[in-house]
Structure formats: structure tokens, C-alpha cells
């Protein structure tokens, strides 16, 4: 790659969106997953790039654990989620054999892996959106991705936070990072805001609420919307993974078979669901309409295609 042009592998991609947060565990990967699924449902072709190298969650989110990514002469070939090849994923998780093994890498090695992921992946020809999921913080991975994308003119970044002040504080740091590297901020998503008790329908703000909205107002950033804690989404992800059971270690399989009796009834329902793809399951889920508001808020900004 020449120093003065954007990586060629990204040249044909219409939009590039980053999902960032200074804080860990706020739902970057969940938001990435839902953003990808929602865009696919809207008819776009979507690619997901996971640059969280020491804790990649994306393969599990899409039910792709145990899959491998292959390298051809021209570069890495992404793993496809669906048969129609509308949704493709690249993650370091696909390159590590055992799901439990750790990658204890220092900065330079992470940088070079990310450089490869940026410049050496054969994304489908007519990709509409590339969504990049990041690890928490503002360190090697973030500097590398900013460096790689500095001439690629990405659409911008979606910032994810949870409502409590401890999390909002870290997200403020991420905002400053975006300003420094000149990423446009598409907006803030407040995740885990409120939990609706399934017994009495009382909404409890487990991690307080409103922090994301206040932050957005203070800094004149778009507030994209809030997502409640929805155990059914997690369940959908986890059920989707039950398919690839043979990859789980023995003990896990045992503990699941222990509970088999309770599950027999559920099993039948699940079997029905299993036949549907993740995209179809998501289409039916209760969180989809909530997330759609967020997606519409991003799309309505009318960011022109890079191509």
C-alpha cells in the first residue's frame, strides 16, 4: 500500500462504520451484531471486522465459533454467516484453533495483525457496509485502525455507553480520541438502560439511566437511542450457538445434558428456531424494532458512499 492512498482492499466498500467505546463490556459487540443484522434485513450487504484480538466475541455472536478463515493467494477470505453471502465476518477468533487459548500479544504484533486485516482481506465485491468492532480503550488497536483508515474516509464512529457515570467518563475519553484522529462521531447509543421485570413489568434502571443522552447533549452529538437490557437477545445468540455444540469442551456438554430434562419442552421450540438463520430470528425478535430507530438515525444522516 502506498503511503498516500487508502488501502486497496477497502476501495470498493461503500460505507465504513466503527463501533467504539472507552469502556469494556458495554455492548460494542452486541451493537455491532445488531447493526449488521439490521442492515442486512434492510437489504444491504454487510461485512464485520473484529479487531478485538485478545477477546474476540464476534464469532460467538454470529454463531460461528469453530469456523476457520482461509487464506488464498490474494488474501484472507471472510467467513459467511448466511448462504446468500449477505453477511461476512473477519475475526482473529477464526485463526485460533482452541477457543480457550489466549493470545498474549504486545502492541507491535497486534498492529501488524490489524494491518493485515485491513489491507489483506478479500471483501465481497459489492459490500455496502463494513462495520468494525473494537476492543475497549484508546491504545494500540485504535491507533492502528485510525492510521490505516486515515485516508480511507470512513463514515464515522458509533459510540456505545452504559448509563452510569463510570462508563460515561470513559466514553468521553473515546470522544476526545475521535476528535484527535478526525473520526466523525455518528452518535451515541445508550445500552443496558433499564430492565423490565418479566414478572411485574416494573422497569428498573440497574445501571441508572440517561447518562448517554446527557453526554450527547453536552457535546452536541447525535443521540441515536437507547437499548434496554433484553435477555431474549442474549438467549437468541446463545441458542444459535447450541447448534455448534460439538465444538464445546466435554464438561460443558455434560452440564448441558444434566439440565436436559428441564429443557425437553423448550427443545422443541428451539428446534423450530434452529432451522431459521440468525438473520430471520432477529427479524422476529422484540429488540429489532428498538434497534431500528438507531439504524434509521444513522442512515438518515445521508452520508455519501465512499465509492
Amino acid at each position: 500500500m502506498s503511503e498516500l492512498e487508502a488501502p486497496k482492499s477497502l476501495a470498493h466498500i461503500k460505507h465504513i462504520v466503527l463501533v467504539l467505546s472507552g469502556k469494556g463490556g458495554v455492548g460494542k459487540s452486541s451493537v455491532t451484531t445488531q447493526l449488521a443484522l439490521s442492515l442486512v434485513i434492510k437489504g444491504f450487504k454487510v461485512g464485520v471486522l473484529d479487531i478485538d484480538l485478545t477477546g474476540p466475541s464476534i464469532p460467538r455472536m454470529f454463531g460461528l465459533e469453530g469456523k476457520s478463515m482461509f487464506q488464498s493467494e490474494r488474501g484472507w477470505i471472510p467467513v459467511y454467516v448466511d448462504n446468500d453471502e449477505r453477511l461476512s465476518v473477519v475475526s482473529l477468533g477464526f485463526l485460533i484453533g482452541d477457543r480457550g487459548s489466549s493470545v498474549a500479544w504486545r502492541g507491535p504484533k497486534k498492529t501488524s495483525m490489524i494491518n493485515q486485516f485491513i489491507s489483506n482481506v478479500i471483501w465481497p465485491k459489492d459490500l455496502d457496509y463494513l462495520i468494525i468492532d473494537t476492543p475497549p480503550g484508546t491504545s494500540d488497536e485504535h491507533i492502528s485502525i485510525a492510521e490505516q483508515l486515515r485516508l480511507a474516509n470512513p463514515d464515522g464512529a458509533v459510540l456505545v455507553t452504559t448509563p452510569q457515570a463510570v462508563s460515561v467518563n470513559d466514553v468521553k475519553k473515546e470522544m476526545n480520541f475521535c476528535h484527535k484522529v478526525r473520526f466523525k462521531i455518528l452518535g451515541i447509543v445508550e445500552n443496558m438502560s433499564g430492565f423490565i421485570c418479566p414478572y411485574c413489568a416494573e422497569c428498573t434502571n440497574i445501571f441508572s439511566s440517561g447518562g448517554g443522552k446527557i453526554l450527547a447533549d453536552q457535546h452536541q452529538i447525535n443521540y441515536l437511542g437507547n437499548l434496554p437490557i433484553d435477555p431474549t437477545f442474549v438467549e437468541m445468540i446463545e441458542n444459535n450457538n447450541m447448534d455448534s455444540k460439538n465444538e464445546l469442551p466435554e464438561l460443558e456438554r455434560l452440564s448441558i445434558s444434566d439440565k436436559q430434562s428441564d429443557k425437553d419442552r423448550e427443545e422443541k421450540n428451539q428446534e423450530k428456531k434452529h432451522k431459521e438463520s440468525l438473520v430471520d430470528q432477529y427479524k422476529e425478535s422484540s429488540i429489532k424494532p428498538v434497534f431500528e430507530i438507531i439504524v434509521d438515525n444513522i442512515l438518515s444522516q445521508g452520508i455519501p458512499s465512499r465509492v
Partner: peptide, 15 residues
Amino acid sequence: CPNCKGESKIFKPTT
């Protein structure tokens, strides 16, 4: 739940 004391597993231990 502080209202009805019903317990929910928000983050389900599926494994």
C-alpha cells in the same frame, strides 16, 4: 426486582 422480589437471570448462565 425491587418491586416484586422476583428474581431474573439477566445474564443467563447457559453454559
